[in-house]
């Protein structure tokens, strides 16, 4: 079974993003970029499936500008076998990403696609569900446990609002990862060196027959209203007094 994992290059989760002065977006120049944390969990899951003998090959796919190859290298260092880079400088929105990934899936024929449930930049939480829809496959989102059964099905435990839910889904399958699925490994230095020799194939949206043009037009991006820091209280008694008599919330 081939497993395809999608990896997105995003502003690192530790960076405090700044809105551009002209209101067109956020500053991404000279900012530390990393693999989307949910995608790291996806890569880890795929690599574990390979180590456990369930998967034969792990393919990491990233879409966007040339620097996305760094993100693919990270996936390769974690244990993915090869990479595919869909090269484009167009702003990619989830529907376009899903269409491009579908075209890659049509070519590679994996049985399982693993995506992060959400990218920490656009916070859209769409691409996995959309890819599954376009492929006509089953979907298991927000996965915290994946068990591949021998009979062409998988059992997936999902993190839902009230707790956990388990569903049985037919393969082929798209899953999206939640935080508790696994704890991603750090790539070792030898594996980082080895990853440099692993192949990355480059393709373009044109070659895949997909128009990646964005559908949503961003009219402006602004800073959120700032909360101003309040006061420090000296004791629990003072706190309760303030909540009762000043804020009047209890």
């Amino acid at each position: 079974m081939k497993v395809l994992v999608a990896v997105k290059r995003v502003v690192d989760f530790n960076v405090k993003v700044r809105v551009k002065a002209d209101g067109t977006g956020v500053e991404t120049a000279n900012v530390k970029m990393s693999m989307n944390p949910f995608d790291e969990i996806g890569v880890e899951e795929a690599v574990r499936l390979k180590e456990g003998g369930k998967a034969t090959e792990v393919i990491a796919v990233s879409l966007g500008p040339t620097q996305c190859q760094e993100t693919i290298r990270t996936a390769l260092a974690m244990g993915a076998d090869r990479g595919i880079h869909v090269q484009t400088d167009v702003e990619l929105q989830p529907l376009a990403v899903a269409k491009l990934l579908k075209a890659v899936v049509d070519k590679e024929q994996p049985q399982l696609c693993i995506l992060g449930k959400q990218a920490i930049d656009d916070d859209a939480n769409q691409t996995g569900q959309m890819l599954s829809a376009l492929l006509g496959w089953s979907q298991a989102t927000f996965a915290s446990k994946l068990v591949i059964n021998g009979d062409g099905t998988a059992n997936v435990t999902r993190e839902v609002d009230g707790g956990l839910e388990t569903i049985q889904v037919k393969m082929p399958l798209v899953i999206t990862t939640d935080l508790r699925l696994n704890e991603p490994r750090y790539a070792s230095l030898p594996n980082i060196m080895k990853a440099k020799k692993k192949p990355i194939e480059q393709v373009t949206p044109e070659a895949l027959g997909v128009d990646p043009a964005p559908r949503l037009k961003t009219l402006k991006v602004v800073e959120p209203p700032k909360r101003k820091a309040g006061v420090k209280v000296k004791s629990v008694a003072e706190l309760v007094d303030k909540l009762r008599n000043e804020a009047k919330v209890i």
Partner: peptide, 8 residues
């Protein structure tokens, strides 16, 4: 950390 206005 940013608020976007988008048109569909």
């Amino acid at each position: 950390n940013a608020v976007a206005t988008v048109q569909s």
